[in-house]
Design a protein around this nucleic acid. Structure first.
Lengths: 225, 225
DNA sequence: TGATTTGCTGATCAGATGATCAACAAGGAA
DNA sequence: TTCCTTGTTGATCATCTGATCAGCAAATCA
């Protein structure tokens, strides 16, 4: 079938790239427990050659890590988020369409999740950025909108989680999801804003009698486990 | 410190339980790649003894899997969800408070996520149940509420994801979250219902001009990748 | 054409890992 | 106490895994 056998010798640059690409796919699929022989096979080289390009398996993993996560978030998005000439709803939708276009890939989501479970520091650092550089500006923009209750950070995380969960369902759990997240994003953003605009109206009544039995202290403080 | 050395010989039942408990903690922490020696050490026994109680490591993993996931969802919750004598908001909050009390544990969330990445079938099956037995009834209850737009399944998943993401942030990513999810749940449910009640009000305007450039066909159909 | 550089491979090693088994010893039965 | 059942262990095995290295061969140069 594939008539021309690929060249046996490659430029170091190209070979290195080839290994990284293969590693991204492999790590995404089976996690960082992938064997060096798996990695080599997927790259179409011998296992020994890996060590000509990377000092160790974790060195390769580190490289993959940076390749996948660094530079995916465009600072331009945040600038656009602050452009108040555009209606708020439109800005939020545009941002989340761009954001999900960047991270809703099999590789990104899975490697991010594997890394999260492994306790990688880069992971927490990334989410710190999400809170500080994305959610906080979004919250500020929403708070600046007249006739809307300013959301707290938990509310922003709920919006974020509701959208990101689409990608998790698809790429982590392997479930069916809409082919395009766009409509779901628009609906979710619209509900979110409308929900903030009408804080205690109609059916969204205060908690019922049966609603708050357990929960000792109300606990706004943060703590883990 | 621990003055009394524990008995060397245990009833098979008790020993088996001890191994399972240790395995739950170990698998949650490091995943199913945990070594049998790790598992044995955490259980306080020799590695060889594991094979007296479980045919293989994957046999033990299977047992852990069932132990953690089976019987966590109470059918009673769904019955309560349908009790229309209670206001809708209260029902939804009560349900999610019960649900999160059951699954927002280090062990449950992490093992579920490890299993999801590993492509376990039980995982998808569980989420199928979530959609059919939890989200669908919730949607029906909301649809039955007067003055509220009936949400589609994607909307229900967005609500669900927004809430579940709290647990993911805490136990998978190791981030700070409110000690109690209760208040966040109430706020999220309230926003969700209010957002459905006021479909196109105020700031939640239709998508702006800059909002729908890409996205060829609108795509309600489902497909993966 | 012959010499030199260097990308690449096969062989190999030490340690880790899942699994097995003969033998030991704790606790009850006779 | 003695015997017997059985929960438990240390030793061991075959295989896997990350890593190393001498040597081959493709491209380049003289």
């Amino acid at each position: 079938m594939d008539g021309m056998a690929r060249p046996r010798r490659l430029e170091p640059e190209a070979r290195r790239e080839q290994i990284i690409e293969a590693a991204i796919g492999t790590f995404a699929e089976v996690g960082f427990g992938a064997t060096t022989r798996d990695l080599a096979q997927r790259a179409g080289i011998t296992q020994a050659l890996l060590y000509r390009y990377f000092a160790s398996k974790s060195d390769l993993a580190e490289t993959v890590f940076e390749r996948v996560f660094l530079g995916r978030l465009s600072p331009h998005w945040i600038a656009e988020l602050r452009d108040r000439r555009v209606p708020l709803h439109g800005r939020l939708c545009r941002f989340y369409r761009q954001y999900t276009a960047a991270i809703f890939t099999y590789e990104w989501l899975r490697i991010f999740m594997w890394a999260g479970l492994a306790g990688e520091a880069l992971n927490r650092r990334y989410l710190g950025h999400v809170e500080d550089r994305l959610l906080a500006p979004m919250r500020d923009e929403i708070a600046a909108e007249p006739g809307i209750a300013a959301p707290d950070m938990e509310a922003m995380w709920a919006l974020h989680g509701g959208i990101v969960y689409i990608g998790i369902r698809r790429h982590i759990y392997g479930l069916e999801t809409p082919a395009e997240p766009g409509p779901a994003i628009e609906a979710t953003v619209a509900r979110f804003l409308a929900g903030l605009a009408a804080p205690l109206s109609g059916a969204a009544a205060p908690p019922s009698r049966a609603a708050r039995p357990a929960a000792g202290r109300s606990a706004r403080a943060s703590s883990r486990r």
